[in-house]
Every structure is written in C-alpha cells, then in structure tokens.
Write a protein that binds this DNA or RNA. Structure first.
Lengths: 231, 231
DNA sequence: GATGATTTGTACGTATGTATA
DNA sequence: ATATACATACGTACAAATCAT
C-alpha cells in the first residue's frame, strides 16, 4: 500500500529487518507489553505480505519479546511480577559471574580501559547528568561482559538485558542514585583491578540487585496506576 | 492434499510438534551438527507444506539448535571448540548460581527430597550402573534447578543444557567417574543442607567444570577422527 | 564465465478455529 | 446458544538467488 520502508535493501532478508525494527520498538517501549501484533497491520506497515510477518513474529516470540498463543494471535510479551523478579535476579547472577571471570581474566589493557572509563564518569555524577551517565553505565557494564572472555555468557547477559530493557526506564531518576551507583561501581572496579574474583562477584551482585529493586518498584507502581496504553 | 499425519490433533499446532521432534533429533544426535535441514525433504517427511517447515526452522535457529544462512539454507548448529568451551563454562556458572540460591531457599521438604535421592544413588555407584546413574544425575540437577525458585534462571539452565546435550554423550563411561561424581554431589548436598550458599556454589562449579572438561575432551577427540557422517 | 537445475524467499488463497453479537 | 465476522494456520504459486555443470 505505501512501501514506506524498505530503505536500504542491502544485507539480510526482509524478515531480519523487520525483526530488528520490531525488537527495537519493543525494547524501547514504543510497543508496550500487551500490545497486539496484528499480522495484517504489520504487513502493510512494512509493505510486505503476511508470510514474512509471520516469520518475524515467530522469531520474536522465540526471543521472549513477544508471546504467541496458538490460534489467538501474538502480543508484545506480558511479564508477570514474579517473572520480572526472577529475571532481575538472574541478571544479577549473570553479571556477577561475568565480573568474577573478568577479575580473573581481563588483560592489563582491559583493566586500564575499565578504570579510565569509570574515573571519567565522576564528572557526570558531579554534574547530575542523568542521560550521559546512563550511556556511560551501558558502556561500563559492557566492558565487564567483554572482560569475562566468554561469548556464550555474554550472549546470555545481552539477551536478558534486552528483555528487561522495557522495564528499566526509571533508572537514574531517583534522588541520589547517581552517586550511589558510581560508588557501587567503584567497589567493582577495585575488586577487578585487584584480580579478586569473589569480591567482584559479590559487589556486582549487590549493585545489580539494588538497581533491579528500583526498577521493579517503579514497574509495579506504574502497573497499578495505568493498566494499558496504546501509542 | 493428503493430510497423512495430524495423528492426535490435540495440543499445539503442527509447527510446535515439528519443533519438538526436530529438537529432540538434534539433541539426541540423530541429526548431527552440520546436517543439512532441507525444507522440501522435511516437508514431506512430516506430510506438510514448506510453510510450517520454514517456521519450525526459524524457531530452531532462534533456539540455537540450527543455523540459518540467508538464501543458503539451514543446517544443524555447528559449534566451534571455543564456543563449546564457553557454553560449558556458562553452564557451570548457571548451575553454581542455582545451587547458591537453592541452599538459601529450598524448603525443608525439598532438602529432604534432594538428600533422599542422593543417598539412594549410592547403590547405583556400587553396582556401576551407568545408565541408571545417568538418569539419576538428571533428576539430581533438576531438583537443584527447581530449588532455586527462579523460573528465569531455570529456563536459562534448561536451554543451555539442551544446547549442550548433543555434546554430552560420553558422560559416565570414564573409569571411576561414577564414584567421583557421587562424591562431588555429596559435597553439594552437604552444603545445601547446611544452607551454606557460597559453599554450594563453589562445589557445584567445580563439579560441573569437571564434567564439562571430560565432555569437551571427548568431543574434540571424536572431531579429529570422524569429520562428517550422514544417517 | 554463462546456463540450467535446485532451493530459498515472498505473495496470495483457502479453510479452520476463535471471538463477538 | 447460534450465527456471523474475523484472524490465524496451512497450502500452493511465482520470483529470486545459489549451486553445479
């Protein structure tokens, strides 16, 4: 009908493009949990037939970003409070494992880079620059994921992080979280630089659990107030 | 045109059935890594058209059991040695996390059940009953996964275990592994019964790493000898 | 390197099953 | 509760890309 997309028909297949787009929309909250993913609607939004749409929806539900009920259509994944708690907890365990391994395995260069990044963020804390700090935070944790030198563990963490992304939007709005976050990071960096795996694991677990608790509280708050929303 | 199958049209959809079947075949080694998954061939093996086959293949590749190259078909996932090492390592970390949480959270009943199962396996060790022990081993680890009371962590462990299944066939053939395995389990059970999370984590990590090393060695052995095989 | 055969990717049509009046 | 409407699941047909010769 409109063919509005299809820009850059380069790499991969149509389906891959759709998956990326839809996954981003879900992860960024543009498609909120519970939103119906109508095959026909998506088909003409992307200017394709229903076949590739179906493939994309299948992949998304396999990723856990969407949920497909047989013969009843597909919606953006709805996560129960219990499940969300479990996911945050698993995230803490995964990051903790990464940090432990990173403390044991990071190269000298990787350690320097982590420390440098961490020290440079002190300014952001002082200025109260929430958005910039949020971006730094992503890099910081990313360096630790890489530092564990385990591709599979990294994949598990990334996947879980993506699934949690729609529920983490409240990150640093809480008063004083910026400074506390930095201090928690400091404990992690110190442990990693010392090569103390157990300390790094413990500090990381505590840090992630703290962040998780804040996010979870925010989510269950907004859930009781606004039951639904459509863009 | 013929609809020859569809026996037991009960639960789920055709695609789900295919996914289960193919996943089992891959996990059990009936479809070896690298085996081509021909759409047309599978279509008439299952008595369906290519459309549901394509969906199933998409899901399998999303699960990491198959690999799909754009315009170049789909094969049973080929795992490099490095990737395999990473997966075994992640498995150790995941199980370790489960054990730590299980030590903190298992109910009295769950602890009793774990201990009872473990003690009952002593006989199997004495008799050298490899197959029976292998089945027990599955239950044993299963109880710990459940004991952590975290659905998401359990899912991650299960998924990873499935992906590793094709590479674990050598489990208990090594001389003396049965007894050693039981002794390692004993350390885990003791720690869990004491409610000592850290000890449980450490014992579990050591145990899983030991098993992994054996599997990895076996795989790289067989890889050097038989490069390919077709059923 | 070009051509034909095979196989994948996409479009479209039909039937079955689910929700709604 | 029955019927109507609609969305999904699968089958078939065509187009495009890959590979084998």
């Amino acid at each position: 009908m409109m063919q509005q997309k299809r820009a850059l028909l380069r790499a991969g297949t149509t389906v891959d493009e759709m998956i990326r787009t839809l996954a981003d929309d879900i992860v960024n909250g543009i498609l909120p949990p519970g939103e119906k993913l109508d095959e026909l609607g998506l088909a003409d939004r992307f200017g394709v037939s229903r076949t590739p749409v179906r493939e994309a929806l299948g992949q998304l539900s396999a990723m856990g970003l969407a949920e497909r009920r047989p013969n009843r259509g597909c919606v953006v994944a709805i996560i129960t409070d219990q499940r969300l708690t479990d996911m945050f907890e698993a995230m803490a365990e995964l990051e903790s494992a990464c940090a432990r391994l990173a403390a044991l395995r990071m190269s000298a260069g990787e350690r320097r880079a982590l420390d440098a990044l961490h020290q440079s963020a002190a300014t952001l804390v002082h200025d109260g620059a929430q958005d910039a700090y949020s971006s730094f935070n992503l890099q910081f944790h990313g360096l630790i994921y890489e530092g564990c030198h385990s591709s599979y563990l990294r994949d598990l963490v990334s996947t879980t992080r993506s699934r949690l992304a729609p529920f983490r939007r409240a990150q640093f709005r809480m008063l004083g979280r910026l400074r506390k976050s930095w201090e928690e990071h400091d404990a992690i960096v110190t442990a990693i630089l010392r090569g103390d795996g157990e300390a790094a694991a413990i500090a990381t677990r505590a840090h992630v659990i703290t962040v998780s608790a804040a996010s979870a509280a925010f989510v269950s708050d907004t859930r009781t107030s606004l039951p639904q929303e459509t863009p």
